[in-house]
Nucleic acid binder design. Structure first.
Length: 503
RNA sequence: GCACCGCUAGCUCAAUGGUAGAGCAGUUGACUCUUAAUCAAUUGGUUGAAGGUUCGAGUCCUUCGCGGUGCACCA
């Protein structure tokens, strides 16, 4: 290890002796990228030379193939690979000597013209080049890349350098979020930013991360949802708002849960849940079409079609269809607890909790193709408006695909008295031992007392959506820097500061 | 939190309880159209950590660390 770094430092010294210091370089005038050149010169004939056009390309050297008087380099930039061809006879002795010092991992820029080699490969015939940076660490195997998942997550930069697929996924994620914004902005929504630091973290059910404000000397929580603040903006008359923001939940970490994740929440005054369902369908279809390139998405072994309209099934109807269960068995708290035993599921502290467990066991396994499940019981939906003709259910749906929950939407409850009663019920549930129920946010009830227009809202888990559209089974593979336990040597901040990585 | 699996050279991987190895990378040399370049030579190890069993441990046992998967948890 130390030897490999020492060898690279020796190369650095050799470059400096020749008057080339890789770390003094500042800017490089890039006039072309690898993929552009490949497209532009795709028709260049065998042995062709486009000498009249000069290009400058820059990136990381990922392979060096010395051949005596000529050297081939594989240069990688953000668009892909391009080969550089350096010939001793066409450079000064000094410049060729510098080229010979370049190694895998170094950053370089090269200027020249495009030609086709005898082997038929497009390459840049290098007239001049510049060393733009030096790599002092050895890169992983050029053929196998970096396989060790722990190292991939801890040193994502190395993963990105050697595993092109990782970069592709992250670029696709960026495009998904961009397309999402474009689609929403075209429908006259305001993008807003609400606080992540809150005295009461409400709007969902999850344990929050706790922190402390020195200035105010008060405890604070990181938000677990953006819901309540966004609805305050609806009360305030902003009518259509959304936020794509980071949410923090102090809970378990597994293939589909990271403590911090990204959620889109969007609210539209004067819409109801049916409007939202159509919006949701159109958004999903738009994303699969523009970003994924087709309506059908592979999910492991399964093909999932996002062609609209999606399947719709009632919440109670689903239980009936998949397990023959009746309304009373679910909506009665005691009966639902009996069902848990029947299905061999551990006891639940609350009715709401029991229904979630039953849904997960009985219904979710059937939800491969995109499906709206609508009409959630009011006990599960403290912020949703009741159905007009069935007040035990709410105007709420969740969208599932690939057995994963992708979206949750409802017509928002805007009756302050009903909202107050539901918060009071939650106090009881919290007291009954469900630590994930947040304390009530009474100011939100006050906001509703000022009057909120009828409104529909939706939450979409961006990470899971990206998982779906990139066929990744783990949320860590769609996050650039998934949370990892620090290594023992780095666990104590003081020690970490005492021992910087040596030269 | 529980169970199982994994951790060996910079990377990818081998090694019945019996001398820790290969390929790539690196180093030295050859080579003016290579592309996993080739050819010749060559360096490199606290086998995640600490104990234990044994004549002898990468291998068996215990504890610990980190990761992965499953379960539990997670509207």
């Amino acid at each position: 290890m130390a030897d490999l770094v020492a060898a690279r430092r020796a190369r650095l010294a050799a470059l400096r002796e020749r008057g080339v210091d890789p770390f003094t370089a500042t800017r490089y005038d890039v006039t072309a990228h690898a993929a552009e050149l490949a497209t532009k010169y795709a028709e260049l004939p065998e042995q062709g030379r486009a000498e009249s056009e000069t290009w400058s390309i820059a990136g990381r050297i990922m392979a060096v193939r010395g051949q005596g008087g000529v050297i081939f380099f594989d240069l990688h930039d953000r668009t892909g690979r391009f080969q550089l061809f350096v010939r001793k006879n066409d450079l000064s002795d000094e410049a060729f000597a510098v080229a010979k010092e370049l190694e895998r991992g170094d950053i370089a820029g090269a200027t020249g013209f495009v030609f086709r080699t005898k082997a038929g490969d497009l390459s840049l015939y290098v007239r001049s080049f510049e060393v733009l940076g030096k790599s002092l660490q050895p890169l992983p195997d050029k053929w196998h890349g970096l396989q060790d998942v722990e190292k991939r997550y801890r040193r994502r930069y190395v993963d990105l350098i050697v595993n092109p697929h990782v970069r592709d996924v992250m670029i696709l994620r960026s495009r998904i979020v961009a397309e999402m914004r474009r689609f929403i902005d075209a429908r006259d929504f305001f993008e807003v930013e609400t606080p992540t630091l809150l005295t009461i973290a409400g709007g969902a059910s999850a344990r929050p991360f706790r922190t402390h404000s020195n200035a105010l000397d008060i405890p604070l929580n990181l938000r677990i949802a953006t819901e309540l603040n966004l609805k305050r903006l609806i009360v305030g008359g902003m009518e259509r708002v959304y936020e794509i923001g980071r949410i923090f939940r102090n809970e378990g970490i597994d293939a589909t849960h990271n403590p911090e994740f990204t959620m889109l929440e969007l609210y539209a005054a004067f819409w109801d849940v049916e409007d939202m369902m159509r919006f949701n369908e159109d958004l999903m279809a738009h994303l699969t079409r523009t970003v994924h390139g087709g309506e059908t998405v592979m999910h492991g072994e399964d093909a999932i079609s996002f062609a609209t309209p999606f399947r719709r099934i009632g919440y109670l109807e689903a239980f009936k269809e998949f397990a023959g269960l009746e309304r009373e068995q679910l909506l009665d708290a005691d009966a639902s607890l009996l069902l848990l035993r029947e299905f061999g599921i551990p006891d639940s502290p609350t009715h709401a909790h029991a229904l979630d467990k039953l849904f997960e066991r009985i219904v979710e396994p059937h939800l491969l193709q995109p499906t709206f499940v609508y009409g959630y019981p009011v006990v599960l939906s403290p912020l949703a408006k009741r159905m007009k003709d069935d007040p035990e259910l709410t105007q709420r749906y969740e969208l599932f695909a690939g057995h994963m929950e992708l979206a949750n939407a409802f017509t928002e409850l805007n009756d302050p008295d009903d909202q107050r009663r539901r918060f009071e019920l939650q106090i009881a549930e919290r007291a009954a031992g469900d630590e994930e129920i947040p304390p009530p946010d009474w100011d939100f009830v006050t906001a509703l007392e000022y009057g909120m227009p009828p409104t529909a809202g939706i939450g979409i888990g961006v990470d899971r959506l990206v998982m779906m559209l990139t066929d990744n089974a783990s949320v860590r593979d769609v996050l650039l820097f998934p949370l990892q336990r620090p290594l023992p040597a780095d666990a104590r901040e003081d020690d970490a500061e005492d021992a910087p990585p040596g030269p």
